[in-house]
Design a protein around this nucleic acid. Structure first.
Length: 300
RNA sequence: GCCGCGGUAGCUCAGUGGUAGAGCAUUUCUCUGAAAAAGAAAGGGUCGUCAGUUCAAUUCUGACCCGCGGCA
């Protein structure tokens, strides 16, 4: 009983770019502090997407429970809101087990949705409606939004069709303007960021890529195709899936595929850092020892 | 050696008689149910070298240097 109370409302987050070594750090900390890991990765939620998404292998989990892996079918689109809900449930369950929840992943938006508890308008994506709007010019979309919700139209990125369409969708479905972003923080959170020197990270990405190719990453994509996914859908998953799909369709030679994929992963790692950088509460670390110390202090 | 083609941003290439652009890369940034997504901004070039024509040359002319292809 005492143990249960101890971790109540406490949450540890490990984030960082692709290939920085988050997963093994999470397992290490989980073993030290009775933790259970919750993945925060927009691709690892899908079944059948293991090697390409860099999912941790069962062996590597060292019998630490991992949540939010393989919770969705790649045939359907998974969204932040679903993630937020499932993650909150998982955290509740982990508290019940008397353990410490450790969120580990690189999808900043997913992490933010849980840590900050951002309140996302309850309007389900309506693909028919979106496709309709997709036919309009960007300028037409801006005009529409100006008419529907002048306030939101002022702040929105007027070149970003996807955002414009979403904003219009919210207004049309709720018959109200887009609400101001509100937060509902539910947890006492410690955020650790794994930082790596640029060149070191590039090298790690390269080695990891080679390793996964040997493990059958290409076969995995062939397998996905066999389950009935279209090439277009597979390409939508990005990075490994996108470039391997190009290769398998003969749109790209093997060497070019590898080269461009490496670059694309590096670029992705940078975008991740851009997202993380603005969060000033992140404790940037480079080794396990510092991480352990920080968590120990946090749990006291 | 001759003929042809080319030499413009880190890379691949547009282009013009009034000192230059694109895509990718680089850097910075945004983020309200697709986030590995979607979008924005910035830096970067004595336009191969030297000379000539011209008010003005990266653009025209000549020579030279370098690369590629063909012929010998």
């Amino acid at each position: 009983m005492a143990l249960k109370a101890k971790y109540n409302k406490k949450l540890v987050v490990i984030l960082g770019p692709n290939a920085s070594g988050k997963s093994s750090l999470a397992v290490y900390l989980a073993k030290e502090f009775n933790g259970e890991v919750i993945s925060a990765d927009s691709r690892q939620v899908y079944k059948g997407m293991d090697i390409g998404s860099g999912k941790i292998m069962t062996k590597e989990m060292q019998s630490i429970p991992h949540h939010l892996l393989d919770v969705a079918s790649p045939k359907r689109r998974f969204t932040v809101t679903q993630y937020q809900k499932k993650a909150n449930n998982a955290i509740k369950q982990i508290y019940k087990n008397g353990n410490l929840p450790i969120i580990c992943g690189g999808t900043g938006f997913y992490i933010q949705s849980v840590v900050d508890g951002i309140i996302i308008p309850k309007v389900k994506p309506d693909w028919k409606f979106r496709n309709l709007l997709e036919k309009k010019s960007t300028d037409q979309l801006v005009q529409m939004l100006k008419y529907l919700d002048s306030k939101r139209a002022k702040n929105i990125d007027k070149h970003n069709r996807r955002r414009l369409i979403r904003a219009i969708e919210i207004v049309v479905k709720t018959k109200k303007s887009v609400p101001v972003l509100k937060k509902d923080k539910k947890f006492n959170t410690l955020i650790l960021g794994v930082r790596r020197d640029k060149l070191v990270l590039q090298k790690r990405i390269k080695e990891r890529l080679e390793k996964r190719l040997k493990q059958g990453m290409i076969k995995e994509v062939v397998q996905l195709k066999k389950t009935g996914l279209s090439w277009k859908r597979i390409e939508e998953f990005g990075l490994e899936y996108k470039f391997i799909a190009y290769y398998l369709q003969d749109k790209m030679k093997y060497d070019e595929m590898i080269e461009r994929l490496q670059k694309a992963i590096e670029n992705y790692a940078k975008r991740q850092m851009t997202w993380f950088k603005r969060d000033k509460q992140i404790h940037w670390i480079e080794n396990k020892k510092t991480a352990k110390k920080l968590v120990k202090k946090f749990l006291k």
